[in-house]
């Protein structure tokens, strides 16, 4: 089954998600502390897993811009990064841009922590005017 695009509108407590599988541009933005993190992130894992069986030849760029997230969302994000890292190890070009407000040191440190285990993924910390 081919999938074109996964979009989830953002809410007060869950991020806006836009995975454009055709172009390989992915993004997640906003707050993330959903009532049930497994229920929210499950479909995202599934779609990503299917897509990564045959990723776009130009590779993947994922933009992440979180204002706040809880521990479950952090774990979910690690799972996504792990999937992408595996795919990158197999030769897919993967670039992740971690956006943080330039006055938000905590969010910057989170980005550094997330990049720790990534060897094959290019991980960029991008400061945004706060």
């Amino acid at each position: 089954m081919t999938q074109e695009r996964l979009t989830i509108a953002g809410t007060e407590r869950s991020p806006e998600v836009d995975f454009d599988f055709a172009s390989g541009r992915f993004s997640m933005r906003g707050e993330s502390y959903p009532e049930d993190a497994a229920a929210f992130f499950g479909p995202i894992f599934d779609a990503l897993r299917r897509y990564l069986q045959a990723p776009a030849p130009d590779g993947i760029t994922l933009d992440i811009e979180f204002i706040y997230f809880n521990s479950s969302s952090a774990k979910a994000l690690m799972n996504i990064l792990e999937m992408l890292e595996k795919s990158a190890a197999d030769g897919t070009r993967v670039e992740i841009n971690w956006h943080y407000a330039d006055d938000d040191d905590t969010m910057k440190e989170f980005g550094e922590d997330f990049s720790e285990d990534l060897e094959h993924v290019t991980f960029n910390l991008v400061s945004v005017d706060g």
């Binding site: 690690m78 792990e82 989170f110 720790e116």
Partner: peptide, 19 residues
Amino acid sequence: RSLREQRRLVRFSDRLQGQ
């Protein structure tokens, strides 16, 4: 890997609670 994640998650959690 799991241990690295655990350490990271505890750090996250501490930082979030601090915030």
